[in-house]
Design a protein around this nucleic acid. Structure first.
Length: 904
RNA sequence: GGGCGAGUGGCGAAAUGGCAGACGCGCCGGCCUUAGGAGCCGGUGCCGCGUGAGCGGCGUGUCGGUUCGAAUCCGACCUCGCCUACCA
């Protein structure tokens, strides 16, 4: 940048600041300065990134792109402002920073607004985007606007469609029939549109039912194991734990029961169950099938049919959440058939019950009431036998249980390779020693448990330690073809079908002969028709659009019918950071070279509410795209930070209906963007969030004005200043100069560390401290000396990433006053700490007696421990505290930070 | 029911094994002003003692433990928040 610039408000001459007739300096005028610099930065194209410049280290900084709801609220600022500070800070370190932005522009709110307001969702969305762009600019955020992505544009969703067809070809996308929520008036509903425990439609209040509909899925479960591996990722533990729990890997066994012959049924059919407790197989006293299990129809006895069908129908109207509610009493129906326990040949009755889910495992369980709480409750209710099969050594095998004995010896067994036994949470952070101790404890517990819990009532296995029983039984079953080790996941395939208009059309044509066929790449995009007929109802207008529906089969050419489902908008957000690198590329979804050069993303910032949705889908997509050869690595985001959430003043989530939304424009108009930015960073730790309160915003505003005054009017004095322009009592000029320099460099050292760790609140506190010190020296003989100028320079540079406008304005005025050529503060190098400046000649040592603070003493920095003890013991207060007792020990703690005298 | 996180002045917070309350708000006093919802200077955890400089005690949700020393580490409990919810 060689532009000879001057300040945005054009100061003249060598004076850095204008004065009024009373000699008071002009105040910082944010309303004029901020927009002027924003315009200048844009003119200079300061924040467009040359993605092909590999001469500097790259820094891909990504923040979750917003949904264009209409206006930024303070929560958007809370995430974007510090993210922008990171970008500016990294640039000052010489990194080639890429900070793109875009809009997550498809989705239901636009459609609802359109139905209500009678306009097109595109109109609403684009108007909102325009408003939000303006707001983003008002905060001075350094987004690379030239790579903006808007997901409702065909240039973007075309590649959603292309990726879908690639997945389809490789079997990663498939169509299957499943139950969805259905309103008789409004059609398909999203899960969140079903309200209350009585399950009513949010719009018309009708009772919602379940409908079986063909839906499109992505096989995220193919990647379940890989998604459990977080190696190399610097992500917050809670997110990793949530994803791990969501995936829910359970290892156990699949066991094959056989159905028994009965008057209505020949028997001999396989009935597979999944269990994590094969060791309790002898205790299985009944079988429970999910109501939807396919075998139910064939196994039900004629005299049970009516009852069973009624139960199945009732289960269908309940949501999964209702069904799984632990509060509910167990219900179920015996279907009039038996199964044969493979291990002992015993006949056990088969039930259906809604506490068994069709979608997990095999949709069937062997019920072991003695060792499972749910089965126990069911057995009690239906008066079924309860047989104890594992128990502590020496207990009575026939004693009646009052509750299920669920202690599992295997849980305490030594950790197997790849399996972590009974270890809570994540223990890596304990380090090698902590890990070792933890393991040791696990092993000891395991040894104890191994000998103490044994099998009973289990035929040939009686007396064996329960810890190894599972393995023994599975081996026994496997030899007879009656079972095998098996792993099951809680994670299910990702249902991406939405029966909605405002989304990416799923690029498929249904052909009578060929079935569903993906639309070939050269026929993409499948455009959303622009004019649609809502007929004032909420269902999908695509189903009534004959021009859209008519399409020939790409394989055989016969007339077919276009798929009308659109994609879940989480598809859009599952790869958008790749598209930022080449948003205008019409030939490919991603640019392989740029992807290789710029991904994985170095730092991602955004809310934790996406833990098991967006953040998991994105990891899946990246792996799937890797396997398609589109990208080179399987993880999207190397480092993740979750900021906290800003709530309304009432402590509730901000929403228009609650009327607790804070509009940032108002604050910006009053205080300026820098004050708002700084205030949001100063409120508290970034990952904490909290209820919104503007109390205290005046404090950071005052701070900025004081920095302005220090920098531009060092010799001025305020009316009311009672120090008379003199140095603090007892302080020489040379002391003051050393003190300023030490403070500036100590602040630089600490502030740099705070920036690196995103500790904005303490970072700003330290800048305030430095400015308070300088303000004290303002108008004294040391103001304007080289140490002063250096301290001011460091202060403004340190402030620049957080408060970019005022820093730039001060910087430009200082440069102009010195008659130097202007270059933006935001392209300056981050200053280096001079450690020698930080070293002080004396230090203050707190003195404790038995841990209680009794005195403090100032000593030369180089004093030895022995000399220090002599000084300390000669102090009156110390002697008084000792009360004649002899010191037992003297501890010099924390590298001389503190001394503790121990007496008895 | 389970998982995760958090409890510190009137308030937002700092300190993550070593001086509790940095920094800011608010409040109190003073200065400057025609004026002040501006600006500047000083004070401000609680209780007690002292005219005073000051002195003493108490204090980080509760109870216990480890340690020379604990807001910080460990155990139990209480409260709040978020996530999850019969996953066999």
């Amino acid at each position: 940048m060689t532009t000879t610039g001057d300040s945005a408000t054009s100061a003249t001459g060598s004076e850095a600041v204008a004065r009024d007739e009373r000699g008071r300096i002009e105040r910082y005028d944010h309303a004029a300065v901020e927009p002027a610099w924003q315009a200048k930065w844009a003119d200079l194209r300061l924040y467009e990134t040359d993605l092909h410049d590999h001469s500097r280290p790259r820094f891909y900084l990504l923040t979750m792109y917003p949904y264009p709801s209409g206006a930024l609220h303070i929560g958007h600022w809370y995430i974007v402002t510090p993210t922008d500070a990171i970008a500016r800070y990294r640039r000052m370190h010489g990194d080639n920073v890429f900070l793109p932005i875009g809009f997550d522009a498809f989705g239901l709110p636009a459609e609802n607004a359109a139905i209500k307001g009678g306009f097109h969702p595109r109109e609403w969305t684009m108007a909102n985007i325009e408003a939000m762009r303006r707001q983003f600019r008002s905060m001075g955020a350094t987004f690379a606007w030239d790579t903006e992505v808007v997901t409702c544009e065909p240039s973007y969703y075309r590649w959603n469609q292309w990726l879908f067809t690639q997945f389809l070809e490789r079997g990663l996308a498939y169509r299957s029939v499943s139950a969805v929520d259905w309103c008789p008036n409004d059609g398909t509903l999203a899960r969140e549109q079903v309200e209350g425990t009585d399950r009513r439609c949010w719009r018309c209040g009708a009772e919602v039912e379940k409908r079986e509909l063909p839906q499109w899925y992505l096989r995220i479960t193919n990647y379940a194991d890989e998604l459990l591996d977080f190696a190399g990722l610097d992500w917050p533990d809670p997110i990793r734990i949530m994803q791990t729990n969501w995936i829910g890997r359970s290892s156990g066994a699949e066991i094959v029961f056989e159905t028994a012959a009965s008057p209505h049924h020949a028997g001999g059919e396989e009935l597979r169950v999944f269990t994590t407790r094969p060791d309790t197989l002898f205790g299985a006293t009944f079988i429970v099938l999910a109501p939807e299990q396919p075998l139910v129809a064939t196994l039900t006895a004629p005299d049970k049919r009516a009852e069973v069908e009624a139960y199945v129908a009732a289960a269908g109207t309940k949501s999964e959440i209702d069904r799984l509610s632990t509060e509910r009493e167990k219900t179920g129906v015996a279907i009039g058939s038996d199964a044969i326990n493979p291990v002992n040949g015993k006949l056990i009755p088969i039930f259906i019950a809604d506490y068994v889910l069709a979608t997990y495992g095999t949709g069937a369980i062997m019920a072991v009431p003695a060792h499972d709480e749910r089965d126990f409750a069911f057995a009690k209710k239906f008066d079924l036998p309860i047989v104890k099969v594992v128990m502590p050594k020496g207990a009575d095998p026939d004693e009646e249980l009052t509750e299920a004995f669920v202690e599992n010896a295997a849980d305490f067994a030594p950790a197997q390779p790849g399996h972590r036994g009974h270890v809570r949470g994540i223990v890596e952070h304990l380090g090698p020693v902590g890990q070792f101790l933890e393991d040791l404890e696990t092993i000891n517990q395991g040894r104890q448990a191994t000998g103490q819990i044994v099998m009973v009532n289990s035929g040939q296995f009686d007396g064996r330690p329960a810890a190894t029983a599972s393995e023994d039984i599975v081996e026994w079953l496997a030899k007879r073809g009656k079972g095998r080790q098996s792993v099951t996941y809680r994670l299910r395939d990702w249902l991406i079908s939405r029966q909605r208009y405002w989304g990416t059309p799923i690029p498929v044509i249904h052909c009578e002969d060929c079935g569903p066929v993906g639309v070939p790449a050269d026929q993409l995009p499948v455009l959303l028709p622009e004019s649609v007929d809502y007929r004032s109802s909420g269902d999908n207008p695509l189903t009534r659009d004959e021009t859209f529906l008519a399409a020939d089969c790409p394989q055989c050419g016969k007339p077919g019918r276009r798929e009308t489902d659109t994609m879940d908008t989480f598809m859009d957000s599952s790869w958008y950071w790749f598209r930022y690198l080449s948003p205008h590329n019409d030939d490919a979804a991603v640019d392989a070279d740029l992807v290789r050069a710029w991904t994985p993303v170095d730092q991602y910032t955004g809310g934790a509410e996406h833990a098991v949705m967006h953040l998991l889908y994105s990891r899946f997509f990246t792996k799937a795209m890797r396997d398609l050869g589109l990208v080179h690595e399987g993880e999207p985001f190397r480092r993740l930070f979750n900021q906290g959430q800003i709530l309304g003043a009432d402590g509730e989530r901000m929403s228009k209906s609650r009327g607790n939304v804070q509009d940032p424009d108002e604050l910006v108009a009053r205080y300026g963007a820098d004050t708002v930015r700084l205030f949001l960073m100063f409120m508290g730790p970034w990952d904490q969030g909290g209820p919104w309160s503007p109390t205290g915003i005046g404090g950071v505003n005052k701070f900025l004005n004081r920095v302005w005054t220090i920098a531009l009017d060092p010799h001025g004095r305020d009316a009311g200043d009672q120090t008379g322009g003199a140095l603090p009592p007892g302080e020489e000029e040379s002391d003051a100069r050393d003190r300023m320099r030490a403070a500036a460099h100590r602040t630089l050292r600490d502030v740099t560390a705070d920036y690196d760790d995103f500790r904005w609140n303490t970072m700003i506190a330290k800048l305030m401290e430095l400015s308070n010190l300088l303000f004290r020296y303002r108008g004294t003989s040391v103001a304007g000396l080289p140490e002063w100028d250096e301290a001011v320079r460091l202060l403004v540079l340190m402030l620049a990433p957080a408060a970019p406008h005022i820093s730039e304005e001060i910087w430009s005025r200082l440069v102009a006053a010195r008659g130097e050529a202007w270059e933006s503060i935001h392209v300056q190098r981050w200053p280096e700490v001079d450690e020698s400046a930080v070293v002080e000649a004396t230090r203050e040592v707190p003195i404790q007696v038995n841990g209680k603070l009794r005195d403090k003493v100032t000593v030369p920095a180089g004093i030895t421990d022995d000399e220090l003890e002599e000084v300390i013991l000669s102090r009156d207060k110390v002697q008084a505290a000792l009360g004649g007792r002899e010191p037992h020990r003297i501890i010099h703690a924390g590298g001389g930070k503190l001394v503790n005298i121990v007496v008895r």
